[in-house]
Write a protein that binds this DNA or RNA. Structure first.
Lengths: 133, 133
DNA sequence: TCGATAATAGTAATGATTACTGTTATTATA
DNA sequence: TATAATAACAGTAATCATTACTATTATCGA
């Protein structure tokens, strides 16, 4: 069951990678339809699900009832959800700091449990700079 | 609009606090019905929502499509979801370490963004000790 | 005891996501 | 290039978690 090319998936990925707004499936659906008016919502969901499972994109569950997606997987960074406007913003940190941070967080948990820690995700909540003006 | 007592809420809280399995709304509904057979699912959701907003209980969004709840808010701890069985387990850490950890995580983000960081949640993913046997 | 109203039960509605099915597009191979 | 196998699709129905609505009930202060 090798992966076959599809224009739908290519376009979807292009749309997702050209924004930093961490959209949900419906936003992506709306945007992709501007280029492929007949794409189906199921196709959007299926591709988002497949690509996040494979690690091509990132799925974010921030507790607002729907999943958000991030096309930027090359540059490690964190996310904050604004309590006022609901937007999700990136928090970029220097690579060297990030390595240390990630190591600290995972080993912090690993030293206190007999389970095997494979991954972790850190979510921040607060007020974005736009809402704070 | 002061809060009035209700046996439904009391029972729900008692049920939630007497387990460490981080149940979802439906599990809680099933359990509470053993004591209050006529409680409605809406009442469960409304109370879970109210109590987590007030901080009486904790809502966990771990990315499996539904919310989980934790009645233990007095002892700060972390959570890991098992990739194999889906269960959520607690990771307890010494109080002094926890303070330092929490401070480190939030200041790590705060020094790299102009947004106001208010809270953070750290979720771990891996294989629980039961699944690792 | 009574009145105001918070909370409820029961049900309908919503919103996000998944499943299904017949059709289309991709790709390896003849 | 034609063909055959099948991955992916469009369109739609179904599911699941959650919220909204409404008439009734329970709490609680006066």
């Amino acid at each position: 069951m090798s992966t076959k090319y599809s224009r739908q998936r290519e376009t979807l990925l292009k749309v997702l990678c050209s924004t930093d707004c961490h959209p949900d499936a419906d936003w992506i659906y709306t945007e992709v339809r501007k280029e492929l008016p007949n794409i189906s919502l199921g196709t959007v969901y299926r591709n988002l699900s497949n690509m996040s499972r494979e690690g091509t994109i990132l799925k974010l569950s921030m507790g607002d009832g729907k999943d958000h997606f991030d096309g930027n997987t090359t540059l490690i960074h964190h996310h904050m959800m604004c309590r006022r406007c609901g937007s999700i913003i990136d928090i970029f940190t220097p690579d060297k700091d990030e390595k240390e941070f990630s190591e600290y967080v995972s080993s912090y948990a690993q030293t206190h449990t007999s389970a095997i820690i494979q991954e972790h995700s850190v979510m921040f909540y607060g007020i974005c700079s736009d809402c704070n003006k």
